[in-house]
Design a protein around this nucleic acid. Structure first.
Lengths: 140, 140
DNA sequence: GTATATAATTGTATTATACAACCGTTTTTC
DNA sequence: GAAAAACGGTTGTATAATACAATTATATAC
């Protein structure tokens, strides 16, 4: 494998992460942050889910998800459905308000990305998306 | 522009950031973290520099860089050179130890990336690197 | 020479995370 | 069927990276 390409990926990833980790640029658009966004999105796409499963899917600690879920519940974006079969467990389901927030946030993110790739070709965007996805799938 | 590609980029970026932000996977390899790494790397490549300029280059708050620089100095990876023309300012220069750490860290990162793209084609790696770079350059 | 601007540091707050201790419920085991 | 173990979730505590505001010491402008 060509070392130069690997080095470029390595460096640019470090830069990308740093940039997007900085508070000013990224963090919060409207009322959601990235974590909240991914949780809500997951629930809309694949249905109500408990914190344990979420934590596994996101590869984060359960406590982290527990807090994020609680915050989203508090804001009225999620509500809990007790698990009929297990008194310890519950499912997090999205509210209408949550859906609205999710939609708005996604829209804002999309606009931001659109700006950033303004002068890219159709082809470049397509490939970039695919490779990012592929890269993410490699993370185990 | 094809909306689907944009949506894919948007989503996969969110996932990527989240993954790499999680403590367990990423953060510290050896004695460096990502921030330290980028600072040391910058200094090796473009020479000694003060915190203000670093902060501008990284688009972070000066105080953030100031603390990171202090931490690196404390560890013996950087040292200060007073600016002869301005009593307030100084330059941060890398030490031999710093260079060694930088090298080791970079090596470890490279290995990690190499694993992740193990089954990618040469071409895919090359394009991914280029597009990441291009994307980063768009962030202004 | 005084006022203002500037380079850097330090104090404080916030956010996202992990790990460990805990609580209450379920499952296992004998 | 009771005791022990496992489990889903929460809460306490710690850490790291960040920003913003206040401060310090020096430089520049008028």
């Amino acid at each position: 494998m060509d070392k130069q390409s690997l080095e470029m990926i390595e460096l640019e990833l470090a830069i990308l992460i740093r940039r997007t980790t900085s508070n000013s640029i990224n963090k919060r658009i409207g009322n959601l942050d990235r974590s909240a966004y991914l949780i809500l999105r997951r629930i809309v796409e694949k249905g109500a889910v408990g914190v344990k499963v979420l934590a596994e899917e996101f590869q984060l600690d359960i406590s982290t998800i527990s807090r994020q879920g609680a915050a989203l519940e508090h804001k009225g974006y999620l509500y809990r459905i007790p698990d009929a079969l297990d008194g310890r467990a519950y499912y997090l389901q999205i509210t209408e308000l949550g859906k609205k927030e999710l939609f708005d946030y996604k829209q804002a993110r999309l606009e931001r990305i659109t700006e950033l790739v303004e002068d890219w070709s159709e082809e470049e965007c397509k490939i970039f998306g695919k490779l990012l996805k592929k890269f993410n799938q490699s993370f185990k």
